[in-house]
Design a protein around this nucleic acid. Structure first.
Lengths: 213, 213, 213, 213
DNA sequence: AATGAATGAGTGTTCATTCAT
DNA sequence: AATGAATGAACACTCATTCAT
């Protein structure tokens, strides 16, 4: 009889193995086209084992997603939260976000699948991330404005827009399966976020009053 | 007996009716959860009729999608292509894009579904739109730079980033089902695209060289 | 296009065919051991057809049961209800009940299966039959007593006991698969119900007061 | 190290504990719906232990049943066999039978389950009980007739009918889950068995010849 | 041309039983 | 002797598509 500790360790390890195999197969085939048979074949375990660890296919799939989101949160917490300079925070935030997904491309597929297959679950998770993520962007904008670095933008809407450009970049990367790395887009995205396309902001700002927005 | 023309007209009308009903049901339930039975119930025709007009469920779904994309292209062609001033083109482009989807929210759902269910078909369509859409953004950036309005940005990557922010905005709108209109985001998105968040671009630009990007 | 009437007729006929095949297979193998595949093989139709007519296996099984109970009720209504003489009603009632099941032995199996697999559904049906069945036995006892034919028995409990002897006979017949007919038991059962085993009731009755009951 | 005797005693005790837990769970949920997991949870032992004592679920279930039948036989042997007066034997037999099941209601559920799930095993057991049970009823009828207490009934069929009324009473009690005790039915059942419903047997007997049986 | 009854391939999930520790 | 993690055979049910009328 194994000690309880050893047993728990093995169970935990097995759980992770299942999540790894499932992530691989779900990312390759999509949620619907993935057969539980394919996952267990990948794993080399019996079907009962799968169902011992996860109640059903949906639960397994969402567990893969939640684990990924947890890992993203952790990276944000470690690499981005400590940064205090608002400009630097945007720059590093964008790069870190992109690098995270460069290192875990399967997770992009998983996220896209969750969005369309389990919109409710995705929405809830998305809202939960507001604190760690959009909330932080908002705070960063506030800090930048207070320090005189940033223009007095509409904080909420601008934070949304910044979040959206990241999501959108991920999305188009997912669709086009570009061979380049996401992180290669850091420069262009960051420059756009920080400086926009206009040559001289102030002047542009003056002129834009004449423009019909 | 109807004349051939009249018959064709009727057939065309019936085809549109089917697409309308299918769009409604697909948007409401998603592609997978939509039953052909639900579509014909919405239509009030027999199942054979559906299959007379569309080879299968997938074809019908993609036809709904293609029709929507065609309509978007048409709007872009009429409302955006004629604009020559680069700044104005960005501003109006964003607004027009958002207003188009405010007027056809079901299409947002359809697009999101196509993306995850039929990635290949979506990719192909996406690439086809490059000429009308990303290609136009690139041309606009070139024009703006030539006219001295825009900074000398990396045209391809910046165009991608602009496209991504629109896609991302659509995406987050889709997820959060915000009650506000998409068009309400025009100001914030446009300001970000044009001016970025930095207070004084040139100065910021100078400083950013010190920043680690 | 078939007329609506003709269509309904065909649907009704098909429904009955399915019930017949299902009764055969359920009676032969029992509810649990019956595969839907076996039923459709017996029928020679596709599986979808089965599920078009009956929502699931349980519904189909209970439909077989309910149809049988309906037929029993009908036989009781036609052959037993009209009888007015209390003694004759008991005699004919027992015989009719036994003959009904001699003519539909599969139904005995179905009833036994329902009892143990779907006790709740059986109980409800049993209670519903009280009006047509136990209620009638009670009324018959009352009439017999009023006419001076019957002793002044406890009507409710005696009616239950009469019902129980019929159920029990069915039950033991089911278990022992006797080759003889149920109806052959009519004489013995009826004699017991009417006269008991004692030689002279009155005397016995007197004596039985001394007995410890 | 335990002595062989002590070990055997422990094994025997453990076996009884398993049977007790299994009876409880089988009676509560029925054979099919009972999971071996539920039984071991009730017991607080591992699954391997269960299978050490009983080859499989069916064997365990039938062991519960056989133990109950054995106990019934023992009660009959002790309480009924010694009775010599035929009338008293019927009266006490019915009461003893009912009281036995009042004291072990779970066994009623077990018996009903065995009947429909393992008809063959039940039939065999039923036949084995003929000697102790139906055989005894037949002998009692013979004795009653010889003593002049009982009418000259068809011994086999009447014995069957008497057995059937007991089975049927058990059955309807099982279905209706009456709150009253089975033993409360003794009077009505016994009266029916002994005296029937007719007021004056002899006269009735005469008249019944005119009746169509 | 329109209908809708019939089809049947495809798949997630359960749970009794085994056996390595 | 006892454990409980692992097993995998078994099976009900769905729904896009067809085709006879």
């Amino acid at each position: 009889m194994l000690s309880q500790d050893k047993r728990n360790l093995l169970i935990q390890r097995r759980r992770e193995e299942i999540l790894d195999a499932a992530k691989l197969v779900f990312a390759r085939n999509g949620y619907r086209r993935t057969l539980t048979d394919t996952i267990i074949a990948e794993l080399g375990v019996g079907k009962g084992t799968l169902y011992k660890y996860f109640r059903n296919k949906k639960t397994l799939f969402l567990a893969v997603f939640y684990r990924g989101m947890q890992q993203l949160r952790e990276v944000i917490r470690v690499k981005i939260e400590p940064i205090t300079d608002p400009r630097q925070k945007i720059i590093n935030g964008v790069r870190t976000y992109f690098e995270f997904f460069d290192n875990d491309k399967e997770l992009i597929e998983i996220i896209m699948q969750v969005r369309s297959e389990f919109k409710d679950e995705y929405r809830q998770n998305f809202l939960e991330m507001y604190n760690d993520y959009i909330g932080q962007i908002q705070q960063n904008l506030k800090n930048g404005i207070a320090l005189g670095q940033f223009r007095e933008v509409d904080i909420e809407k601008t934070a949304d827009a910044i979040s959206d450009i990241l999501q959108g970049t991920l999305q188009s990367y997912y669709i086009l399966k570009a061979n380049e790395k996401l992180a290669d887009k850091t420069q262009a995205v960051t420059a756009l976020l920080l400086k926009g396309v206009l040559k001289i902001s102030n002047e542009a700002s003056a002129q834009s009053r004449e423009l019909q927005i």
